[in-house]
């Protein structure tokens, strides 16, 4: 029995003249036998679910029922479905919004965001960084000729995983705890939304990593190769940084202005900026050689 039907049964019983009403004759005896006797006054009527439309004619009745509420404890899978409650178009919109760092359009602050983006966009970046690194390595051994086989570095993969996931989840968490618990600011994003913003911002590294595959062809030109590396690293780093700050700064500033500490917002966002510069340096060192300019 679907939830909508259940509610209807309860509502029918609640009807004032339910004893006289002929239409309820089929439902009331069942209700009486199925549960202990409760006087009709004590019935607690749940509000009818507005989102469940009536069954339309012509549709099969044996379609599976899928629950759309996220109740259940912290240990149940259903609890976390609220963070994965998005569809394909919303996901692509989120990705586009992350790359579009000049837009002033903002969603409401209360939205919880989603964790699908942080997890899988970051996974994509890790894969493509690994892919571009090994691919350019293959290209190098191909351009240089000979049958010197390229040996891939498995540590690169684990390094990328800990670096990017660590950054995407740790920095927002630290920021959240400092602002909400230590400084006691209000009106900020929920933690999941912050992580969501950081995760989607990682998408800027994808074109950067793809661009850097070309460096395999430039193995004999030191200057061009190093220029390409710097360009791709700065491209990814700057765009993701802008995408994060454009979304976080206005909200932080607003909640700081409320308590008359406008400078605090600048300090907080400067701290985020410093952390991001740290990420850029770490990516440059671990995936694009060292920090030398030429």
């Amino acid at each position: 029995m679907s939830k909508a039907n259940e509610n209807n049964d309860l509502l029918d019983i609640d009807n004032d003249n339910w004893l006289e009403d002929d239409t309820n004759l089929s439902t009331t005896p069942k209700a009486m036998t199925a549960q202990a006797y409760i006087p009709p006054d004590d019935f607690v009527i749940e509000p009818e679910v507005p989102s469940a439309p009536q069954q339309l004619p012509g549709q099969s009745s044996d379609s599976p029922h899928i629950s759309n509420n996220f109740d259940g404890g912290v240990l149940s899978v259903n609890h976390y479905r609220r963070y994965f409650n998005l569809n394909t178009t919303e996901f692509l919109q989120n990705c586009a919004q992350a790359l579009n760092f000049v837009s002033t359009k903002t969603d409401s602050v209360e939205e919880i965001g989603d964790l699908y983006g942080p997890i899988w966009v970051t996974a994509t970046v890790i894969f493509i960084l690994f892919f571009s690194n090994t691919c350019s390595g293959l290209l190098v051994s191909w351009v240089q000729g000979g049958d010197s086989t390229y040996k891939y570095n498995f540590d690169l993969l684990t390094g990328a995983i800990s670096l990017l996931y660590g950054y995407t989840f740790l920095i927002p968490t630290i920021f959240y705890f400092i602002t909400v618990w230590y400084l006691k600011l209000t009106g900020l994003f929920p933690l999941s939304r912050l992580i969501s913003i950081y995760g989607y911002a990682n998408i800027a590294w994808v074109p950067a990593a793809i661009l850097s595959i070309l460096r395999g062809f430039l193995v004999n030109h030191t200057i061009l190769s190093s220029a390409l590396k710097w360009i791709s690293v700065l491209f990814g780093g700057v765009i993701s940084c802008a995408s994060i700050l454009v979304k976080v700064f206005p909200v932080t500033r607003h909640s700081c202005v409320v308590v008359d500490k406008e400078k605090l917002a600048i300090v907080l966002c400067a701290a985020l900026l410093v952390a991001h510069v740290g990420l850029i340096i770490a990516v440059k060192v671990s995936f694009f050689g060292d920090l030398s300019v030429v």
Binding site: S2, K3, A4, V49, S51, A52, P53, Q55, Q59, S60, D62, S63, P64, H65, I66, S67, N68, N85, N87, T88, T89, E90
Partner: peptide, 14 residues
């Protein structure tokens, strides 16, 4: 079938 189920339980699948 799943589309119908999603509609009946109010899940937004876009």
């Amino acid at each position: 079938n799943l589309l119908i189920a999603a509609r009946n339980s109010g899940i937004n699948v876009g």
